[in-house]
């Protein structure tokens, strides 16, 4: 029965550890809550004009305006919805083209120069992700003018970061044996890439691109807010003419488009993997 004997020292040690962990978690939570309290007092309490909102009835009245749908807007929705969808598709494909060289520069094992070009590739990935799509769209509207083109370019630039980062990681994790084998039988640089690297990274990259396409539909729906066509432009116009029922219709169209995109991407990803 010796094995059932419990060591009192071990029990007290465990209780001690548990107490210490408990205190530590408590301190972390206290710090977080104090910080949140500071944020609330700094932003919401100091910055909000409660009288202007008009109390609960005011808020309910403003929400109520959105609840009557403007069904008459339906025929005007079809073309912007198509535009939004196409902008997302073209933007994603263009983003793939842009991410190819970036991924090539930013993958440690295939980069042409590790000292100069590798950091540049990494920097481009971070740059693309850290600038919000609205900011990209603003820059491109000032560079190429209004229309669908700045939206497409903004979506492409914003997608580069994620796609090229995942692609570069996939390239870094490949099995080197096929590459060596192709080189050993005399394959040139292009053949090494096409037959050695591409088949290994292809499923990962395609799944990433489909995922990004799904997100890009969401992004292309707001490009119109800064002058780049699609559903965002219609949303902006309805909002500016205070046609709240029309705003709700546009939002429903966006929801429908996104659910559709999610379903398509679900099946595509299943087909790829």
């Amino acid at each position: 029965m010796a094995s059932l004997d419990v060591n009192p020292a071990a029990i007290s040690l465990q209780a001690d550890l548990r107490r210490r962990r408990f205190t530590k978690m408590g301190l972390i939570w206290l710090a977080v809550l104090l910080f949140i309290g500071w944020c609330v007092s700094g932003t919401i309490i100091a910055d909000t004009d409660w009288s202007r909102i008009g109390g609960r009835s005011g808020v309910l009245a403003s929400i109520g305006r959105y609840l009557t749908l403007d069904i008459g807007l339906f025929p005007e929705l079809i073309i912007p919805t198509l535009e939004t969808f196409m902008m997302a598709c073209v933007g994603t494909v263009l983003g793939c083209f842009f991410s190819l060289p970036v991924a090539w520069l930013g993958a440690a094992n295939v980069t042409p120069s590790k000292t100069i070009l590798y950091p540049i590739g990494r920097f481009l990935m971070v740059l693309s992700r850290s600038v919000h799509e609205i900011v990209w769209a603003l820059i491109f509207v000032s560079a190429v003018g209004l229309g669908a083109l700045p939206g497409i370019l903004a979506i492409a630039m914003r997608s580069v970061g994620f796609i090229s980062k995942i692609t570069a990681e996939a390239i870094e994790n490949i099995d080197a044996k096929p590459v060596e084998a192709i080189r050993a039988v005399g394959g040139n640089q292009f053949q090494v890439m096409y037959y050695g690297i591409l088949p290994q990274i292809y499923p990962v990259v395609l799944a990433t691109v489909i995922f990004e396409w799904d997100i890009n539909i969401r992004r292309s729906a707001v490009m119109g807010l800064v002058g780049a066509g699609g559903l965002g432009l219609l949303f902006f116009r309805q909002m500016n003419s205070f046609n709240y029922g029309g705003v709700s219709m546009v939002i429903l169209a966006i929801l429908l488009l996104i659910v559709l995109g999610e379903v398509i991407s679900h099946y595509l990803r299943k087909a790829v993997i």
């Binding site: 909102i53 992004r219 729906a221 709240y244 939002i251 966006i254």
Partner: peptide, 15 residues
């Protein structure tokens, strides 16, 4: 599904 900028516009119109 709804982008954060659209949420912002909606909340600005209410609050």
């Amino acid at each position: 599904a709804i982008h954060e900028t659209i949420w912002t516009i909606l909340f600005v119109s209410v609050l």
